[in-house]
Design a protein around this nucleic acid. Structure first.
Length: 296
DNA sequence: GAACCGTGGTT
DNA sequence: TAACCAAGGTT
């Protein structure tokens, strides 16, 4: 890299880190280095806004403060604690992860990115996030915010992960990664970026002239124009609210999640239940010639 | 690599 | 109001 580019990069480091000191968000998972607490926050934050996670994270951590306490409960209890967060598969994966760590790793989360990635629910991003935020590794992190920021700051670069690795500062990598995310969430937003208040505006080639790529929506499979995943969520919510009583007849479940449920919907409902069963979210059994549904 | 997976606020 | 969007992961 040329000296000029190096100097410019150092300026980016300085400006962003300074901005983060004064404008970074005071989020609870930034005040700890506890691997379990960092992990829970990262799983919750997958495709989920910070504002929503803030509503549920403290209560979840209080109820399940470590891998051991979480590993001892069942799917039903975890899904109730997960209510409102969405993507319920994450709760099941987190539970299985806790059981694995508690049972096979003496309650200690692995430190290596490769090992982390082998655990359920931890992919490329989350493994790097845990390595950096919990273990202090000097590794890059790229999620939707940072991907957008880097695409605008380095429009000629193609691979954002490679770019993120190349521009990593020599120290304060924790603050650097968190700062880039805050910049994307607060200033460098998708629709109308607030370039006037951006600490990097003088160094950004696309400042004040951001074009956002027009994305086309895909069509989701569903019923009556409602995607199947919404019905899946309704099924889980019905089961959550059946405190005590274990199972429910599929026919009754159908009428609860779809007001005009009829015999023509039976096959469709069976498909939903099969997918939920495969994900470990429900158990499907036989009952009086029909089908019964409960938490596993 | 595309399809699938919740929930609810914002525009 | 319909569409978009949000600290991704799995198959």
């Amino acid at each position: 890299m040329k000296n000029k580019a190096k100097a410019s990069l150092r300026l980016v480091h300085r400006k962003l880190l300074r901005w983060y000191e004064t404008s970074g968000r005071p989020l609870p998972w930034r005040k700890t280095r506890n691997p379990y607490k960092i992990l829970v926050s990262e799983i919750m934050l997958q495709q989920t806004q910070v504002s929503r996670v803030l509503q549920h994270y403290p209560r979840f951590i209080k109820k399940y403060p470590n891998f051991h306490s979480l590993s001892r409960v069942g799917v039903a209890e975890v899904l109730r604690a997960w209510r409102g967060l969405g993507y319920n598969n994450r709760a099941v994966r987190l539970l299985n992860l806790a059981r694995t760590v508690d049972g096979l790793h003496e309650g200690i989360l692995p430190r290596s990115i490769e090992h982390l990635r082998s655990l359920p629910g931890i992919g490329h991003y989350t493994a790097h996030a845990i390595a950096c935020f919990a273990f202090g590794a000097k590794v890059p992190v790229v999620e939707t915010n940072i991907g957008r920021v880097l695409a605008r700051l380095f429009p000629s670069r193609q691979n954002v992960w490679e770019t993120a690795g190349r521009i990593l500062p020599p120290r304060r990598v924790f603050e650097w990664n968190q700062g880039l995310m805050d910049l994307g969430a607060l200033i460098c937003t998708p629709h109308l970026p607030d370039c006037g208040h951006c600490p990097l505006r003088d160094l950004c080639p696309t400042a004040h002239r951001v074009v956002r790529p027009a994305m086309k929506k895909r069509k989701e499979p569903g019923r009556n124009g409602i995607p199947n995943r919404i019905y899946r969520g309704k099924i889980i919510e019905v089961l959550r609210n059946r405190n005590g009583r274990g199972s429910i007849a599929a026919e009754r479940l159908g009428s609860l999640i779809k007001p005009d449920f009829s015999v023509r919907d039976r096959i469709w409902l069976r498909g939903l239940l099969r997918s939920l069963e495969k994900d470990g979210l429900v158990r499907v059994g036989r009952w009086r010639g029909g089908v019964s549904v409960s938490f596993p």
